[in-house]
Amino acid sequence: MKTKNLGINTICTHVGEVEDTQFRGAISPLFMSTSYSYDGMDAKRYPRSFNSPNQVALSKKIAMLEKKEAAMIFGSGMAAISHCLLAFLKKGDHIVLPQTLYGGTYNFVVQDFEKFGIEYSFAKGFSESDFRSEIKPNTKLIYIETPSNPLMKVTDLQMIATLAKEHNLISMIDNTFASPINQTPGDFGIDIIMHSATKYMGGHSDISAGAIACSQAHIEKIWATSINLGGHLSDYTVWLLERSLKTMALRVKAQTKNAKKMAKWLEKSTLVAKVYYPGLKSHPDYALAKKQMKGFTAMLSFELIEEINPVEFMRSLQLVKYSMSLAGVESTILSPMETSHALLPAAEREKQGIKDGLLRFSVGIEEVEDLIADFEQAFEKVKIKEIN
């Protein structure tokens, strides 16, 4: 069957399966071996070489989802990011990044790059001139994250890809918040696409994984570094991730639809000071998000009015879980200050616009009416407590 024009659900379900030639089961068999014969075989297979049967098959699915030639799977999103950056940067090289970044990525750059002699600059904004002004003769990469974590800033993918090519640079993106369902950066010329597959690719809050999709030439360079660093994923988790990806399009589309409804409802609430969601017409990047995204995202952030204690509000929720991480089928809420951006100094969080009262809301697949009812009862509890 030709795979070029397959629908997204068909890709999620069928591409990158391991064929069960013995029993012809409906799902991929799981190969747990860490020792494979190499005599007369097509490859010397070993899990740390990223080429076990399940790893190779799943990489094909992820590559097709992101419209790239090849992919690799890692033990976490940060493993994917760190392996990829170290594959293309060496002592004396320079990278340009946006000021607003996932806390783990920011911490890796500012704490570890100096050890490797790698230079970095943060763009002061998100325009072409902001990024262009930071490019130096030794710049090798432009790295972006869009929508950004947690303020949902949107960066122009076409602009970044064009700017990178103009200066013979490699462009990289963390596409986690959008997922391949809501955004395919390869369509705009972005070279390397990364994911915390823990999130929408996994989707059930039970997998830790990372993924990279790019050209075959780039994947070979990443592989050469990664085989030394050893950040591969166990084959059992690879198998679980392939299972989860089968329903990714269904899950993400439902979550995105709910997120837009919740963003509109929160924006109307007198108890909410500000909502950050690129699918709202009030969002400064709405037009750009509509241009380059297929369905926005299922993530949003918001700030409560000062009179409401955000921690007490989260504790009062009954359906929405006050917990870490994001993108599971269940709705979750957290404080970036306490979790994803806890490693950033308070001054840096303030510089990025991440207030202590900011809440990040990962919208699940529940009926949106039930989510609204949960928010309403939590608001009522907090208001009563404030009065007392």
Rank of each mutant, 00 (worst) to 15 (best):
T332E: 09
V382E: 10
V311M: 07
K381Q: 09
I27L: 13
G103I: 14
E350W: 10
Q216S: 15
N107V: 07
L359F: 02
Q318V: 11
F188C: 06
M337D: 13
K199M: 12
H341S: 12
T13N: 15
I305Q: 11
F131L: 03
Y102D: 15
G77I: 07
F31C: 08
Y322L: 00
E66D: 11
I173L: 06
L233D: 02
Y36V: 05
S49V: 02
K268Q: 13
L343P: 05
A346R: 12
V368M: 07
S49A: 14
K260T: 15
P150E: 02
G189D: 07
K136Y: 04
S59V: 04
Y120E: 07
I308H: 13
G364N: 07
L266N: 12
S121T: 00
L288D: 09
L250A: 12
W265Y: 10
E366A: 05
L250Y: 15
M1S: 14
E386N: 15
A213P: 10
K253V: 12
L343T: 10
L169T: 04
V272E: 06
R349M: 01
G364A: 06
M248D: 00
K290H: 10
R45Q: 04
S282M: 07
I118E: 06
V110D: 06
N9V: 08
A87E: 13
S282D: 10
T247K: 15
R315G: 04
E114R: 13
I192W: 10
M194S: 07
T3F: 09
T139I: 05
L157R: 07
T339L: 14
I190F: 09
D187A: 06
K4P: 00
I118F: 13
D156S: 03
E330A: 14
I142A: 06
T100F: 06
F361V: 09
S205M: 12
K274G: 07
D187F: 03
P150V: 02
Q158K: 15
L6Y: 04
H341Y: 05
K261T: 15
I142P: 13
S129D: 09
D374H: 03
S215W: 07
E312I: 04
H14W: 13
K2D: 11
K153P: 00
L271P: 01
D20A: 06
